[in-house]
Amino acid sequence: MVDAEIKRDRIIIRHKGKKWDWMLEPRYWRNTMIWTALLVVFPIISYFVSPILLTTVITANLYAAIAIPLALMTVGTGRLNFGPNFFIGVGGYAAALLSIAYGWGPLKTLPFAFIFSMASALLFSPLVILARGLYYVLLTLLLPLVFMEVTFIYTDIFKGDVGLSGIKLLVNLGRVKLNFLACAYISMALMLLYLLVVNKILKSRYGLIMATINDDEEVAHGIGVNINKVKILAFIFPAGMIGVAGWFYAHYFATFAGITYLPLSFMVKVLLVIFIGGRTQVFGCVVGGYFIAFLEMILISTLGEIQPFVFPIILLILLFALPEGLFGIYRRRRYREYLPTLHVRR
């Protein structure tokens, strides 16, 4: 029996002797509202002003939609996964192959992309228990590269060299510009949904438990945290979320090639989103995603040939100059404790 109770500032849910409370605190919502409104207005303005920006917005949203679950995975497993693009590959190929084979639309392939990437994560989940430190980094780094080799070896299935084509489009409204606008809003909805879910998880008791695992696994085990369960769940669930980003790529471009997403260059960009935005700060992932997508776009359009050199140099300078990332600047100025300070009266 689930028993829900609505109070002034929270919803309390009870089930079998367990209790969850969902804090509703509108006084903390103002900044979130302002930023969300700005984000939502941006594509519609660029639709009328310069539609070329829409592709950049989509890229930025997808960078953020990959980085946000990766931040959750990093906190929950206490290890930095260097191969998030493996799950993009799994989700994307699952969606692409199913869409081509059965002629399925994006809505039908979505659950399969999610489930397949979670299953692949479940297959590799012993990594988070057995490997730690540099070994975990190396093993996760190898996963997408090995997967890329597989797409070349079994090229009759995966079409590793030319890429799969003939996937159903995400939306088809008849006009290219409108399609891009719709894709921009779908990607933004995906990103905002991830932001909401991951932020809620990180601010709840599970986030606190993950934080202890991140800090000291052995001690966390000693105070009663079932660390293996938490780590495996924190590996599988974000993996499914990242796989959905792969699903989006497959249906957005109507083609999917592993060589675009599986190599190191794509992975480095995703990691930079996390580091420039602010380590494991979910809001920082959005800042970082937009920053990197727009920086890349501006440099490509202004610098031309020397862009491949200037882009990493700027990022390196930023990595040294901003150890806490772009979001860290904001956070340092206006830091808030999550829980209001408890007052005990005598």
């Binding site: 009870r14 606190l208 829980l339 408890l342």
Partner: peptide, 9 residues
Amino acid sequence: INRGLDDAG
């Protein structure tokens, strides 16, 4: 039983 984050706090 009935342990939320606030109760724990």
